[in-house]
Design a binder for these strands. Structure first.
Lengths: 234, 234
DNA sequence: GGTGTCAATTGATCCCTGTCAACCGACGAA
DNA sequence: TTCGTCGGTTGACAGGGATCAATTGACACC
């Protein structure tokens, strides 16, 4: 179920789910709905900041990016969601924009149905509130990463978080796929695309990772990366 | 309960309530408890990250600072709480440390009593979950501030948030008190104390603010400050 | 094939902010 | 009083990342 465990500092958990969480099965069970799968192309907007929430979605494939824009156009990525994540829970109005970064399949659950399930099933309500707490925890972790860590540490924490996620989902923790573009990673880590790119190069040259494509990272020395991500010394 | 080891922290305010929210009256009403006021000196620790939550507190006077530490000692301030804020709601385990930045009076409500009230009174449960959502929103706003804004913009947004809070509480929006020290502001904004200090000087020289003491800010051109805070250019 | 577009990488340079340090004013103790 | 401490301010300097710019590679389309 979704316990909000206390975290250790910097590693992991960062990435995810401001707005999303993993627990798709249980949520789908508790929310009766027409099992409608929506297919959405890449770079489509699911919703915008301030809009009223109409649906809860379960990500079945693809990836979602949550962001906000400043008046002058600067963009901040608040997080990503991946297959298995439930997105859109929280307050009645969306905190941020949501866009696909890939072709994505979503299972849509009407917000009304979701709300009803919360009221009627206390245990489900607990799960939902635990999910929000989890998102809060992730947001705080995000603050930690971008407020004090160096570019190397930020990227390391991002990669380690994805590795940990793979591990949790039964995939290999030693290689990850980056569905999003560099600009999304940069805006998520509070860096520029150039710095992100250079940092990847530094990691490659240092033998920490290998990359045959820009979207696939193979870990060569995950211990060192993890130490970097934790914001410890080393 | 309030163990006293340690750091100095101290401060207060920003807008936000990572962990806190304003709705003290209603919360106190719904949670039956022995009306016990606790007086806590400055720089005392209320709780530490990872500890199980034992009480919900309503801040009656003083100020609280929420922070986390990295393994190497770097410190991140996640937010502040002021009189009228309810602190400690959220998951069963604390996300971060909480310390007083001033002598503070707190009203303590046992977590058990709080939980019972949530179960027994649906409307109260809604308020509690709205509070968590509010904290989540504040955390995202914090991410925005520290990931993309310049030092000037960060400090401006901090000051404007305090001004807005004053306004909301019926106090003058044109002057604010900073109960926390520079190091707390710095750790909250992802800057150093030197940069914070220099930025205050820049604002003073530019005629945006006036300060007779280091802890009192009088706004001279709040429009410009607000424009800066919004990240809009100017 | 050639061309256009978009994403990623790399290079050169700049500047904002961190770092290290000195200094100042307030306050408390001896 | 003098001394010591603490918090804040200011200065000098340097480094990390941003900025501006060019290059490369992948891919779609004609």
């Amino acid at each position: 179920m979704f316990d909000t465990h206390s975290h250790q500092i910097a590693h992991q958990n960062v990435i995810q789910l401001p707005y999303g969480m993993s627990a798709a099965h249980s949520f789908a069970q508790h929310c009766p709905h027409q099992p409608g799968i929506r297919k959405v192309a890449a770079n489509e907007t699911l919703w915008c900041e301030g809009e009223e929430r109409s649906h809860i979605f379960i990500v079945r494939s693809g990836a979602i990016c949550f962001s906000r824009m400043l008046p002058d156009g600067r963009r901040i990525v608040l997080g990503f969601a991946y297959p298995g994540d439930v997105i859109g829970i929280g307050s009645d109005f969306h905190y941020c924009d949501a866009q696909t970064v890939q072709a994505t399949r979503l299972e849509a659950i009407p917000a009304s149905s979701f709300k009803r399930a919360i009221v009627e099933d206390p245990s489900f309500g607990k799960q939902a509130s635990a999910a929000v707490n989890q998102a809060l925890d992730a947001a705080y972790q995000h603050v930690v990463v971008i407020s004090k860590l160096s570019a190397n540490e930020r990227l390391a924490s991002f990669l380690i978080a994805l590795s940990d996620r793979n591990d949790k989902h039964g995939l290999s923790p030693l290689s990850i796929v980056l569905p999003m573009r560099r600009v999304d990673i940069a805006d998520y880590l509070g860096l520029t695309i150039e710095t992100v790119s250079r940092t990847f190069t530094i990691f490659r040259n240092a033998g920490l990772i290998a990359m045959d494509q820009a979207s696939i990272v193979i870990f060569k020395d995950i211990r060192k990366l993890r130490a970097l991500a934790a914001g410890g010394g080393e």
